[in-house]
């Protein structure tokens, strides 16, 4: 029983198809790394899988998904602990202590998020994944602005999550030292069809 499955998926950004024909399954304990040049549609694919936009073709099967995009979703006026408490309450997830210690934030718990460095903010954004209590993590460039020690911390957290029967789909360009398969999106780049092949009344809703 796979946690997340995509079948013949095509996604569009701004009405143009980005990638098409993508199929994969993600089982418990499995991590899948998304690769591909800038602009090919890694973020669009992740947002589609997270349910933030509808696929233009194909199917996605899977719920229990936690999405972590480029923005961390932090409120600068709230403290680290308040930010995590909020997401824990919204997702009905576990208490925040494990998340704080996993990303080495325990000492910063009472600090307001606007006083954090970029790397610390990212660590808090990643710690949020634990308090969602969700099985499938969709991660979009999770290691941006992390130093080497924090990347190792994050890889440990990820291994722990996989060990507990979770799964992760990660768009990243760096090596995390995980035992993971790689899905290169380059062969799935959507071919640009000439406009003449489009039926009359074509618009982006039917892309």
């Amino acid at each position: 029983m796979s946690l997340l499955a995509a079948r013949d998926l095509a996604v569009a950004r701004g009405g143009l198809r980005a990638v098409e024909g993508v199929s994969f399954t993600l089982d418990a304990g499995q991590a899948l790394i998304l690769r591909g040049p800038n602009g090919i549609g890694k973020t669009t694919l992740l947002r589609t899988l997270a349910g933030l936009q509808a696929p233009v073709a194909g199917e996605v099967a899977g719920d229990d998904i936690a999405y972590a995009g480029h923005a961390d979703g932090l409120k600068p006026a709230l403290t680290v602990a308040e930010n995590l408490h909020f997401w824990s309450a919204i997702f009905g997830g576990p208490p925040i202590d494990a998340a704080l210690s996993a990303m080495n934030l325990t000492e910063l718990a009472r600090r307001p998020a606007h006083a954090l460095s970029a790397g610390q903010k990212r660590r808090l954004g990643l710690a949020r994944l634990i308090v969602t209590g969700r099985k499938v993590w969709l991660l979009d460039e999770p290691t941006v602005s992390l130093d080497a020690a924090s990347v190792a911390l994050f890889a440990d957290m990820l291994r722990g999550h996989l060990g507990q029967g979770g799964a992760a789909l990660i768009a990243t360009h760096i090596e995390l030292g995980l035992d993971a398969q790689v899905l290169d999106l380059t062969p799935y780049r959507a071919t640009i069809r000439p406009p003449t092949s489009r039926p009359a009344g074509f618009n982006e809703a039917f892309a």
């Binding site: 997270a50 480029h70 961390d72 932090l74 997401w87 997702f91």
Partner: peptide, 14 residues
């Protein structure tokens, strides 16, 4: 929307 919370709220159980 700016800080990304809206995306996360939209994927939340709420």
């Amino acid at each position: 929307h700016e800080d990304g919370s809206l995306d996360l709220l939209a994927t939340a159980p709420l």
